[in-house]
Design a binder for these strands. Sequence first.
DNA 1: GTCTATATCGGGATAGAC
DNA 2: GTCTATCCCGATATAGAC
Lengths: 222, 222
Amino acid sequence: MHRGGPKSEETRGRILTSAMDLFRSRGFEQTTMREIASEAGVALGSAYYYFESKEALVMAFYRQAGDDTHKLIVQALSEEKDLQGRIRAILDVKFRYFHPNRKFLGALFGHAADPENPLSPFSEETRDTRETDIRHFEDALRESGAKIPKELKLHLPRLLWMYQMGLILFWIYDRSPSQTRTGQLIDKSLPVVVNLIRVARFPLLRPIRKMVADLLDAVYRV
Amino acid sequence: MHRGGPKSEETRGRILTSAMDLFRSRGFEQTTMREIASEAGVALGSAYYYFESKEALVMAFYRQAGDDTHKLIVQALSEEKDLQGRIRAILDVKFRYFHPNRKFLGALFGHAADPENPLSPFSEETRDTRETDIRHFEDALRESGAKIPKELKLHLPRLLWMYQMGLILFWIYDRSPSQTRTGQLIDKSLPVVVNLIRVARFPLLRPIRKMVADLLDAVYRV
DNA sequence: GTCTATATCGGGATAGAC
DNA sequence: GTCTATCCCGATATAGAC
């Protein structure tokens, strides 16, 4: 898998950087492998020597982003106590990190929502990143001291991950300047989410709680 | 816009039919414009004369599907009284109509979730279909006799449309035989949705109701 | 092992002759 | 309105320089 010396590593890095720059400024579709190669100062064949396809370049970016944000999130979580602050911390890391890549992620979603597509956030190939991501929410819940109804305990982290994916989708589509609407959406929806988790324990809502638990079991059953 | 005689109309129709057949059996990506043209018995250039791109063929399909399901939904709604039955009627029409096209829609989502992409369900180009769709849920609510808190009245139809989009996305990803899991998801989630609408009026939930209304106003404000 | 140069192919899209 | 020829690009492959 191209395990070479520092020279090799450097070329590989240069190709990846060029690709990211072009993806960011022009989007995924518009960028050609020929441009990436020439921008990186290598021949087309070399680009293919290091990355077997245009998609492979994106997978490399995913992995990189996953590793980077993981470290940032672990750090951020250690500084927050209550549930809302802890979820917020995860979201802040994500949105700050992906901010320069919004256009690129947009174009990417256009190639990634197909379940057969390896780049999909739900695909087999991206499972590792996804599971790590879900575990962040598990951590956020566990150390927060929030009382979670036992029926919901199992699936709540995954549900929060879905909530996060929804926010990211909204953000990608958000045309408001500096994506201020997404900022509002987070500010206003996060308290709702946290409050829903809190009131879920109320006896009055027991029937709905049961229905939701039943629903989640059916959906996530293996 | 290629307004020609009946001959032209017939050729156009033949190309669209061939495309749909091939999209269904092979998916969007795998089908080539050359195949579509040859299947329709015309030259490649001719296919491009009628449809300026492969995507344009899909837009034509969208419009067709929108018109067809609209008629079916109006009919189905006239036969249902209570809210759950009425929402269910809309969903049933949709899923029955799209059933033969699941694979095709899947491949399509892989090219349609990009906000810049005209095929996106959120794009400017698909606005008409989307607004008609949302109006179906408005109708379902209005004649159902369900009491809707006034803060939620404005945005609830759009929210139900989002619920429907979520179900369709789940269905596209659903690998279970005959998509039985999607069936379960609908059976179990629809009562939750209807019950949430019902309990939303409870005084106990007033704070959350206010927060949600505030959230919706911010998100859908123009 | 690293990289260039070049050829070839499939497929979306276009130009221009008829 | 229809066809042929052509272009561009992603992808694959290969020969050979260093």
